[in-house]
Design a protein around this nucleic acid. Structure first.
Lengths: 195, 195
DNA sequence: GGCGCATATGCGTCAATGTGCATATGCGGT
DNA sequence: ACCGCATATGCACATTGACGCATATGCGCC
């Protein structure tokens, strides 16, 4: 039940609707955690049933009415209880790693293409973190406890992306050295499976 | 369908039984990917139904007979097809990050305890990666394509653990500076929820 | 002789997650 | 008039994952 707690954590900042939460999960927290709107609405219903959050309907014209969710005292307590439990270190579970493990049984060219795309992706995200860091923490220090948490969060994100980007570069270099050496028969076009 | 492909990737090395795969997922690949034996057996059944792997029963005395699974040509092709698709960058999804985001609504002491445990955990893993690297790649270079993949894999693992460990240290330092400042009422004993 | 352990495979259930589809409406473009 | 888009919420289904439990047997320990 981690997504529920992530939502509670978001609601400590300010009351939000499911729609807003979905957008939040598309930016700030969402850099670390992916969740689409259905997942969030479902979790919101559960949290409401448990009494951890309270919904207040706001009538709107031209748009559907919205439900603004607020943390209840029970919700705050639940969040604190959850945060007091030891965390479980997550595993990485990146397709890239599995492919590396079977590197001599797969085709190098798609792997190189993928590594290049990933390199760009992680560089973009890194730049994004750095941009936000410069904007929110120009002098690299935080004042309150909330700010401290977000500063640390952004720093971790930046470092992580930096590290993965470096890794992609290194892997590409290493692959260049052996490229075309033991390449298997190319895949026939039109036979590739899709996601 | 990523676990299935991870299993196919493992079977490129050598034929294995479900039991052996479970142990593999507890060590080498398992550093990045957690899967218990039930999950693996279920996935093996699916892969067998698809014709990606072939089971050969080996009669044993004293122990239950074992099923040694081998990659079929179809399985190899499926793995190559899968590896030719672009990978999706995974999200981090670490409880620690959620807690940091809500840092001013939770208790610091359990957070510090947790960070210390995590620091130890990631240091241990880092040491483990370094140990394996020194043993398998004493001069830091790989010969074949398979070795190259594993070298890169271990290097990524080592760097990742190093980075997270550094982060834990930094977070602990930063928390020390503010500790006891805005601490909320401590949780009552016996009221903590469990996993 | 009973207990736990390693070997070896598997079922059942539930929570978490992912994907597609449904509904309702105003606004701006073609 | 119709289409797509942003706003706003939600159901249904399938897959994946986590957890407990079941079965079968030989071996060493106390």
């Amino acid at each position: 039940m981690a997504l529920g707690d992530a939502i509670l954590a978001c609601l400590t900042e300010r009351p939000m609707t499911g729609y807003e939460l979905a957008k939040t999960f598309d930016s700030s927290i969402g850099f670390f955690w992916k969740a689409d709107h259905q997942q969030i609405y479902r979790e919101l219903s559960k949290l409401r049933d448990r009494g951890h959050i309270q919904g207040r309907e706001v009538v709107q014209s031209g748009k559907p009415n919205k439900l603004v969710y607020t943390l209840t005292p029970e919700g705050r307590t639940a969040l604190r209880h959850w945060a007091a439990r030891p965390s479980t270190p997550p595993s990485i579970k990146d397709d890239l790693l599995v492919r590396l493990h079977a590197l001599d049984s797969i085709d190098v060219e798609p792997m190189r293409t993928d590594l290049m795309a990933r390199l760009e992706h992680h560089r973009d995200r890194h730049a994004n973190y750095e941009r936000i860091l410069k904007k929110r923490f120009p002098d690299g220090t935080a004042e309150g406890r909330l700010d401290l948490g977000n500063l640390l969060l952004l720093r971790l994100g930046a470092r992580h992306e930096q590290m993965v980007a470096d890794f992609c570069e290194e892997a590409l270099e290493a692959l260049s050295a052996t490229s075309g050496k033991a390449t298997v028969v190319p895949l026939e076009e039109g036979k590739r499976e899709k996601g």
